[in-house]
Amino acid sequence: MLPDFTTLLIVCPLVFLGGLVDAIAGGGGLITLPGYLLAGVPPHLAIGTNKLSSGMGMCISTVRLYRGGFIDLRLALVPIAAAFAGSLAGARIALMVPAQVFQILLVLCLPVAAVLVMRRRTLSPDSRPMDEGRRRRMLALVGFACGAYDGFYGPGAGTFMLLGFAAAAGLGVRDAAGQMKIVNFSSGIAALATFALAGEVDWILGLIAGAFGIAGHYIGAGLVMKNGSRVVRPIILAVLAVLFLKTAWDSLPR
């Protein structure tokens, strides 16, 4: 059954904008998922459908960044596995710990992340010299931590991963964006499969919206390759600000 015009009018532009932001700095789900909910899509179906449309766009930006030379597959294999394991651990923890506890911790940590973004060394254009073994360990640690966060809570996971790859593993901003994209893409595919098996994906709406997501991701990946840290830094700050406000609001007692 085709979605109605009003649903498409709400969802498609927001998926395009979310794809643009996500390709540059992660955090596109802060825009796309509320778009589905605003259009009246039930929560679980919205999450699953969002995984489909965002996965389509993420595939394009991942391929474009790989062809541009910003993804090292040898380095990516370890954080992909670590992020997958972390996501499983995070999901298990989520079943035992109230989400409000993590939201409070997140509100305290977000200003620290913003300070890291403001430091020019954190998001430098070029990668810092580092022993390859140490870099792999740092990528694995960041991948596991961000995967755990993604499984436990989720919003802004790609943004934190990009920051971690840049600050802890010493990658230049464009290389960090590339590595983040392929790790995040892999975990997104696993999540999509989970929701699809549960019947929580609107395939027609997701495919239509995914076309707009592809356009957003394609343009965003091009901006990363062309302008590097000049584009990434302000987008990350905007994502962190929105995430801070959203999490602070969700943490308030009702």
Rank of each mutant, 00 (worst) to 15 (best):
L110I: 15
P129R: 10
A85G: 15
V78L: 15
G216Q: 07
Y218N: 07
I235A: 13
G18T: 01
M56D: 11
V142K: 01
F165L: 12
G210Q: 07
I182C: 08
D72Q: 10
A167C: 03
P234A: 13
L162V: 00
W203L: 15
L252W: 14
G172A: 08
Q179W: 03
A221Y: 02
L38C: 07
Y66C: 12
R64Y: 06
Y66L: 14
A238G: 09
F84R: 00
R136F: 00
G199I: 08
D22T: 10
L65V: 04
G133R: 14
G228S: 08
L95Q: 13
A148K: 00
D72I: 05
R119F: 08
F212P: 07
L33E: 04
D202N: 14
S127L: 04
L108I: 10
M225D: 09
Q179H: 12
L65T: 03
Q100H: 13
P155D: 00
A83R: 04
D175Y: 00
P234Y: 12
G19P: 06
V224G: 06
C146D: 01
V63M: 15
D22C: 02
L105Y: 13
S53C: 14
K246H: 12
V15T: 12
A248F: 15
P43Q: 11
G133S: 11
I80P: 01
V107Y: 07
G35W: 09
A145Y: 06
A157N: 01
S229H: 13
L108D: 06
G90F: 03
A169F: 00
R134L: 10
A215Y: 04
T49G: 11
G90S: 06
I47N: 09
P34H: 06
V15Y: 04
D22L: 01
I214C: 11
A91V: 00
F16E: 02
L110E: 04
A140T: 02
M130G: 05
G48P: 06
F244C: 05
A196D: 05
I24F: 11
L45H: 03
A209I: 04
G18E: 03
R120V: 04
G172M: 06
R137L: 13
M96D: 10
D22V: 00
L197P: 00
S127W: 03
L205T: 06
A177D: 05
D131K: 13
D126E: 15
D250W: 00
A82N: 02
G210C: 10
M56A: 11
G57D: 02
I208G: 11
L240K: 03
T6S: 14
S54L: 08
F70Q: 12
V224M: 11
R230V: 11
V224H: 07
F84Q: 01
W203H: 11
L252D: 05
A82R: 01
R174A: 14
A148G: 11
S54H: 03
